[in-house]
Design a protein around this nucleic acid. Structure first.
Lengths: 264, 264
DNA sequence: CGAGATCGTT
DNA sequence: AACGATCTCG
């Protein structure tokens, strides 16, 4: 028996908007401490990891660990039927091949329940190693989204370079080149407007802007984003979900031009 | 060496939005007094003339007259990467085949530079003769845009007729006809809301609405537009840029129906 | 000026 | 379906 009541239902709506373009189907893994999802994107290049801890729910009951395979497109369709102020309850019965989403309007005048078929999904369980990162940049998520969008109008890849002074985003394309420099800046009115650079070693890595722009769909989840980098490791782009968990995106770096991909 | 610093960068963004649909490539002619651009539109029917005087720049340095060929679509792409309240600096080096646009956020926390390839463009230099106009109408630019858009839903051409009393915009199409009359009106709260008619001789001329509607892309540049007409001369549709210059569009009149085009 | 929503376009 | 452009609101 599974029953999760989330007062801020818009949060779940946003979570789905942020990952449904990247992943078609995925298993939600429910346990007593919360639920999580991990999946490679459909082209097997990026990885999405979601965690929502039970503490963030008004009511959370999960009698035994369960994995439910869902089509994220269909799930997103259903969640779009919830109002932004609705309370969302997720319900499942042991052995059932469906999950139910219940939406309650704030005034309780409207109560909807949507039942969705589950699916069997091979869960290639993915160990994500903890890592020490050479550089971690925390910055306003809207700023990061704007930069990725702007650079994508010039080129296909972005070089992210971090030094103590700041972080530089660069690209190059047919019509020219672009460099955007953000300097570390903590003297701001609101802490979420700060750009904070935690750097052990300078790093410079290259990534596909197409994926970065997909990750920035999570911008509505958090005012800030953190970007963690170490040479030859996937970058981690993390959007924290207040008091509850996170959505993290992992993306392997592109090899530098003078360092062709293995087998190329 | 060329370096122009424009505090109100949004102005340059708007200028490009206003002309990029009409002209694909054009030479920017820089001199110590400012810069200008003149070009026929891609179908060689209309003419665009832009002037931005050095006085409007916070800093203006142009050591020697230079002409730089730019693809306006690509330039517009890059300018879209500037924030609306960014300071824009245009930089060029003698003999270089690129131009650099630098964008500084108001807080200086973000500094971007975009380098764009220049191109060789045949500059058919166009003498635009000064002319005395029979009638000059000054009116709110938004009103003019609205009229052109509305008439284009009925017909393809507009007859603009000016008398002392007012200005009439007329069209005719398959579904019917339309006439919009604006009378002279200077008793308004704000001078920019006035419709002012300066008339030496009544005129009545016909123009293609398609081009007029393209010209109205410049509406964000100015609250007012002036329309200057003399029989058999191109109409001039001018949007003044506060303290700096103007964007002017020239369009040859259509011959009246009972006066077939030469060779037709 | 920024954010959100809606609409039209590719 | 996704993106951009426009409009409205805060």
């Amino acid at each position: 028996m599974l029953e999760l009541r989330l007062v801020q239902g818009s949060l779940l709506k946003k979570v789905l908007e942020s990952i449904k373009d990247l992943v078609n189907d995925a298993n939600f893994d429910f346990s007593s401490s919360g639920f999580s999802l991990q999946s490679m994107d459909s082209s097997h290049v990026a990885l999405v990891a979601l965690l929502l801890k039970s503490e963030g729910f008004e009511h959370y009951r999960c009698d035994r660990n369960t994995s439910m395979g869902m089509n994220l497109g269909n799930m997103s369709k259903m969640l779009k039927c919830a109002g932004n102020d609705d309370i969302i309850t997720i319900k499942g019965d042991d052995g059932s091949d469906t999950v139910t989403f219940m939406f309650e309007s704030p005034t309780q005048d409207k109560i909807a329940d949507f039942e969705m078929k589950l699916m069997d999904i091979d869960s290639e369980h993915l160990g994500i190693p903890e890592a020490e990162y050479h550089a971690i940049v925390k910055m306003p998520s809207a700023e990061f989204a704007r930069i990725c969008k702007d650079l994508a109008s010039i080129g296909d890849t972005v070089v992210i370079s971090v030094t103590k002074e700041g972080v530089k985003f660069s690209t190059r394309g047919d019509i020219g080149t672009a460099n955007i420099v953000l300097r570390q800046n903590t003297t701001v009115d609101k802490p979420e407007d700060a750009t904070v650079i935690e750097m052990n070693e300078p790093v410079s890595m290259t990534f596909a802007l197409r994926y970065m722009n997909s990750f920035t769909k999570a911008t509505p989840l958090s005012n800030t984003v953190t970007i963690s980098m170490s040479p030859d490791l996937p970058v981690v782009v993390e959007y924290k979900i207040a008091e509850m968990g996170y959505v993290r995106f992992y993306l392997a770096p592109k090899m530098e031009e003078d360092e062709p991909e293995p087998g190329a």
